[in-house]
């Protein structure tokens, strides 16, 4: 079973990242996938997140207690899940947005927002982080993610998003 949590701040495209990941695993790779999104009064005040749970068999687990991977795009989101930090397999952090980073080994810092800015669109930081995930999560196929972007993201942003995905992947390869 694959369990990924993506967390950020309203407007950072965290849910979209979840949808792209879910679409890649479900449609591209034939997994059974459940993707949920946080969506509450809390969203209005900021924190937004999306969970993706995938398996080769029917997924009946609809909530994640401990994720394998956590992708964090915002400080307050990290603060909210601090107890999970040590327990998850790997933490992928946008180091431009998150400064107070816990001292653990299972952690990757990516200046995702800066990479996105260099690509001319700060909104694609979420996809940069997915690119990193595609390097770290062996079950996840890079091409499936690319195809998912093509299906999910509006045409005019497609190229930009794919570039972001590649950059993230490259960055992780050199990490």
């Amino acid at each position: 079973m694959i369990k990924v949590r993506i967390g950020g701040w309203a407007g950072q495209g965290t849910v979209l990242a979840g949808v792209v990941l879910g679409e890649a695993l479900a449609i591209g790779q034939g997994y059974e996938v459940v993707q949920t999104r946080s969506y509450s009064a809390a969203v209005r005040s900021g924190i937004s997140f999306s969970d993706v749970i995938a398996d080769r068999e029917t997924v009946d687990e609809l909530t994640i207690d401990i994720p394998d991977f956590m992708i964090i795009q915002y400080q307050k989101t990290l603060d909210a899940w601090r107890p999970l930090v040590k327990e998850c397999r790997c933490l992928i952090i946008d180091s431009i947005q998150v400064h107070d980073i816990p001292d653990t080994k299972n952690l990757i810092r990516i200046p995702a927002s800066d990479i996105a800015k260099d690509l001319g669109n700060t909104k694609v930081a979420n996809i940069v982080l997915l690119g990193v995930l595609s390097k770290l999560l062996p079950e996840l196929e890079h091409d499936a993610l690319k195809e998912a972007i093509k299906r999910v993201v509006p045409k005019r942003y497609e190229e930009n998003n794919i570039e972001a995905l590649e950059k993230g992947y490259e960055y992780a390869s050199e990490y």
């Binding site: 949808v19 879910g22 479900a26 449609i27 996938v33 459940v34 993707q35 949920t36």
Partner: peptide, 8 residues
Amino acid sequence: GIGHIREK
């Protein structure tokens, strides 16, 4: 719980 989750 079902209205708001995504699945195939």
